[in-house]
Amino acid sequence: MAINTVIPKKNRNIDDSFYREMKFVRMRTENLNFYYGKKQALKDININIYQNHSTAIIGPSGCGKSTLIRLFNRMNDLVPNTRIEGGIYLDDKDINGPKADVVEIRRKVGMVFQKPNPFPKTIYENLSYGLKIQGINDKTLIEQKVVESLQKAALWDEVKDRLHDNALGLSGGQQQRLCIARCIAVEPEVILFDEPCASLDPIATAKIEELIEELEKYYTIVIVTHNMQQASRVSEYTAFMYLGELIEFGKTEKIFTVPKEKKTEEYLSGKFG
């Protein structure tokens, strides 16, 4: 089985364990430094993102979580006046290298943003957009993928009767699930979540969390969160960042129960942040 394939649900246990044992490194950074103008936002980051595991990135506001996660799909290309040192690798290929294809990378590494950002188009068009961009024109195929992604994002039942309504008419939580569906529709392999619940109410948050836990079965997930419970609930690995540095990285249960670094302990016990 190719490493890139999404593992079907029913085979999950077998393949999952395979990946778990292999601890296949899907993405990693090597001595990564990042600058906004003269200001250094990331310092010497070395982190591994394991295939079919989920990794949470936690840390106080302004420590560089968003900056790091946005580097994984080159979203920071849009920010002028920035500089990268060191490498970011997807399947051992440098994503900033001269041969890297940014469109390809973003297709493989999808992203869900802090604020739900559906296009001001219909629900259907929101989902078909990425497919059409890829040059898929077969109507039945598109339709099938639209339905599939809505089902995976646990939104199908709520919107199946109004696929051709404007997406901005959905509630915040539904919009965020639509954004997740839009991301899934193009079949990424890694999904980056940057505080996906930050603008949602507790009920919508619970739904999204449940969804993310479900998605972990098929995708490699990186999630930035401010919410400790969320991190411990949804992730298997946790990275703690502070002032642009990666202070500690490891199994979530270890980080939360027996952190090695004093800073991590202080943060988790709510001394700052």
Binding site: N73, M75, L78, V103, E104, R106, R107, G110, M111, F113, N117, P118, F119, Y129, G130, I133, Q134, C179, R182, C183, A185, V186
Partner: peptide, 8 residues
């Protein structure tokens, strides 16, 4: 950003 994120 949303558009770029799906590979446009």
């Amino acid at each position: 950003e949303a558009s770029f994120a799906v590979g446009a």
